[in-house]
Amino acid sequence: MLNAPAPPPAKPIDRALLRDLRLAVEDFNCDYADTLDRGDIEAWPDFFTDDGVYRLIARDNADANLPLSLMSCEGKGMLKDRAYAIANTEMFAPRYTMHHIAQVRVTDFDDQIVTAQANYIILETLIDEPTRLLQCGKYRDKFLLQGDKLLLKERNCIYDTVLVPTCIVFPP
């Protein structure tokens, strides 16, 4: 289940390595958040591997083992199509979003795959409206470590804010 506790690592991981991996994931998340919060949606697919998967899932669906996602991309093509639609075809009011990502935890490292999770909060600001909470949720991630660079093989965003306020334009 997507929101079940992370299982213990398959093989024991050296504490120093675990710390380095956590710092690398934190750096990655900072860059990811900064890119989206600047509105540079067309750079978003580059955070993923070519076969990268992105899913945005309401927590009640995850709890009930229902597979529907609010956004779902399988591979770079679909990630790029989502980014293109946001940049070019969707109609929405201009907005600022701001991610706050915390409690980064690396739970496994095996065969260059880093399993990690983090909590996130996204604040959204529309013109002439007070800032509001758009989402709070949890990232359940799998990264591919290539040299010293991380890429997302899988990012599942499980959100507690099930009753979505109007809509979610930019991917959390």
């Binding site: 945005l56 597979p67 529907l68 996602s69 609010l70 956004m71 779902s72 991309c73 399988e74 679909m78 989502r82 639609a85 075809t89 969707e90 109609m91 929405f92 009011a93 979505v164 109007t166 809509c167 979610i168 334009v169």
Partner: peptide, 28 residues
């Protein structure tokens, strides 16, 4: 077919390619 329907559902819903258009237009 399950996977196809799930993939296609990117079009609708409050994060959908056209679901967003309608929700925003109604707010306007």
């Amino acid at each position: 077919m399950d996977r196809h329907r799930l993939r296609q559902n990117n079009i609708f819903g409050p994060g959908g390619f056209i679901g967003i258009d309608d929700n925003e237009a109604i707010k306007f």
